[in-house]
Structure formats: structure tokens, C-alpha cells
Design a protein around this nucleic acid. Structure first.
Lengths: 197, 197
DNA sequence: GCAGAGATTGACCGATCGGTCAAATAGCCT
DNA sequence: AGGCTATTTGACCGATCGGTCAATCTCTGC
């Protein structure tokens, strides 16, 4: 009976543990709804210790979201640099779905609170990326239905993965079946849209 | 010369004006992120006046969300009482889209913060409704893809209408074109799913 | 004019917020 | 042992939170 089992989860550096706990809190009860005291309590630290590892609550949010935003930026850069074609779009859908699966909680956090946190640099960067995505989508062909299809496909996928965590109890584990079904549905939604990028 | 022009917008009863302002705030910066002082400032009242019209911040949230939840309950009751068929589902999709269009901000509010506010009665009621919707959807036929299709269709539509407000600037006004496109896309997403309800 | 209900307000309350700071503790190198 | 840095912590700060309360103001009916 080991008192402190590594238990597979993160018994890593304190700052990593704090980041992980903060991510859980931010995505479930919101940034404004999360106090440094709560994070400290869950982590078993004092509030002062949290502020020792992260200069401020906003710095903690930045550290939490930055890896996801970086990856989103990477995924989009690849897509935007490719010639518009059905293949490049298929590749984008696949990597976008992969991004969603890997960073669900981060996506949930800045998607749901992007408006409230727009003056936080990392969130502003995320919002700019999404706005660019939206623009690129509805540039040449800007029919309302096209916009809606992209919005429902990408936003709906993002929403379902995260809000599904709330309503569907334990389902939606990140296995390959989920990934493939997502790619299939999203691709189908975009099938009527010409590859205008 | 009337000093207070009706100006088209709501110069109705103070409680209605406060409800409207609170809805804007709750949906844009979140319930936890909205203070009674902010609401009072926007409305041009004092914080005490807000608490005169609504017994508490939670009572204000209740008053804001209740009409939408009532309508959702109505829409779902009609759907659940009908025999499963393609027609009843089409009718449900249409009224659900109508519900989304009519109550976007309310939907945005309790969809994004349903987890954080689960102990608020009206939000708990909304969550129960959505859970029932999710259950009814994946009851007999519970393939992962079916769940995803429903989630993406309904959640995606809900998300796009509200988050679209954030990213797409002025578009997405609630005209009939928007409604018809939404009904079309959602119906298409559900077309491969048999009407198991 | 005046009484009384409805509406509005500022003063105030305890609690909590994010954040600062100096003191204490723990671990390591020599 | 001593010195040194990294880490942790409690005490404390001003600001703001949601909420209470009594005093005012406004308007109506008589």
C-alpha cells in the first residue's frame, strides 16, 4: 500500500501539475469563476505558492493555453500555405480534428470565453487565428450556407467534444473510432463546398 | 417635448431592461464575470436598485434564462410525445432551429456555463433537458457516429449562432434565409440516422 | 395638503478577490 | 558545519464581490 502512487497521472514538476489543474478549472467553471485559492486547494499548495510558479493569474492562463494556440497556428499555417485542393482540405480537416482531440479542454476554454478574455494576449492571438480561419473560409465564396457549413462543422465538432464531456457522461474517449467518425462527418459537411480554402 | 424618447429599443419596465442588460453581460463575459455593479452601471441604476428588482444575482439569472428553458421544454415535449417518424423529426428540427434563433443569447449562456452553474435550479433544469435530449437520441441506436451527428448538428448550430456573433462581425441576422439554411444543414446531418427519436 | 406605496439610493457589512512581502523551510554544494 | 538558492508559506494589502438596511425620493389617490 504505497501512500503516494504515481498512478499514471502527472506527478511531475509542480508547475506542470498546477497548469493541469488550472486547465481543468478554467474549462469547467471558467476563468473568472476560478480563484487562485481554488487551484491552490486542489493542488494542495498555498495561494502564495501558485503565485510563485506563475507571476499572475493571467500568466497561468497564458501558460495553459499557449501550447494549444501554437499547434492551431501550425495547423493553419500548413493549410494556408498549400494550394487549394480537395486533398489539402482533407489534410486540414484531419489535422484540425487531431488538434481538437488533443487539446479539447484548451479549445473549450478559449472558445467559450474568447469574448470575455479578448484583452489577454494569448486569447487575442487565438481569436485572431479563428477570425482568419473564418475569413479564409468565406473569402471568395461567401454564401451564407457555406459559412454556416464551416461553422457547424468545425464549431460543432469542437463543441461536441467538450460539451459532450458535460452531458454524455463517460463516452467520447479519444480513440481512433472517434477520430475517424469525426473526420467523416466534417468532411461530409464540407463536401458541397468547393475548395476555395 | 418628451425627454425620454422610446428610441425603438426597450424603454419598458425597469425589470425588463435589467433582464436584457444582464442577458447581454452573462452571455458575453459570463455569469461569474459579471458583477451587479456592472449591470447597474450599464443600466444607469445603482447596485441597490438592481437588488430591489431582483432579490439576488441568482434570481436575476433565473429570470433571464427561464423563458428560454420553458420554450425548450415545450419543443421537446412535443417531439417526445409524437410517434417517431421522419415527419415528426423534421418538425422537431424546425422548431428547434426556431428556438435557437429566438433565444441565442440564453442558449449561449447556459450551454457554455451549464457545468459551472449546475446548482442553480433553472440551469439544472436546462441541463436535465439536454441530457434527456441526448438520451432520447442515442437510446435504441447508440452508435458513436449517430451521437456525433446529433451533437454536431444541434450543438454546432447552437454554437455557430452564438460564437458566430463573436467572430463573424455583423452577419447572421435572424432572417428567414438563415433559418432555412440551418434547417437544411441540420436535416442533412441527420438524414442518415433512422428516426429512432 | 397629505398619507402611503413603490422606487431609488448611499452607507455599510463580511467575505473573497488577485497580489505583495518578508520570514521560514528544504535541498544541495563545498 | 556553513552558505546558497529554490521553494513554500502566512500575514497582510487595497479593491471588489454579493447583499442588507434605513433614509430618501416620486408618484398616486384622497
Amino acid at each position: 500500500m504505497s501512500s503516494d502512487a504515481p498512478s499514471g497521472s502527472s506527478r511531475a514538476r509542480p508547475s506542470d501539475e498546477l497548469r493541469s489543474i488550472a486547465l481543468d478549472q478554467f474549462s469547467s467553471v471558467g476563468y473568472a469563476g476560478t480563484s487562485l485559492q481554488q487551484i491552490a486547494d486542489v493542488a494542495g499548495y498555498s495561494k502564495s505558492s501558485v503565485l510563485y510558479h506563475f507571476a499572475s493569474k493571467e500568466a497561468l492562463l497564458d501558460a495553459v493555453l499557449t501550447p494549444a494556440i501554437d499547434e492551431l497556428q501550425r495547423v493553419m499555417a500548413i493549410w494556408l500555405s498549400a494550394r487549394p485542393s480537395e486533398q489539402s482540405r482533407a489534410a486540414f480537416v484531419e489535422s484540425f480534428v487531431g488538434f481538437l482531440l488533443r487539446y479539447r479542454l484548451e479549445v473549450h476554454t478559449f472558445i467559450n470565453q474568447g469574448a470575455a478574455l479578448e484583452d489577454v494576449p494569448v486569447v487575442a492571438r487565438a481569436n485572431a487565428l479563428i477570425a482568419r480561419l473564418s475569413d479564409a473560409v468565406s473569402a471568395a465564396d461567401s454564401s451564407l450556407e457555406t459559412k454556416l457549413r464551416f461553422g457547424i462543422a468545425l464549431g460543432g465538432a469542437a463543441y461536441t467534444l467538450t460539451a459532450g464531456l458535460t452531458y454524455a457522461d463517460s463516452a467520447l474517449q479519444p480513440d481512433d473510432e472517434l477520430r475517424e467518425a469525426l473526420i467523416r462527418i466534417v468532411s461530409e459537411l464540407l463536401s458541397t463546398v468547393p475548395p476555395t480554402r
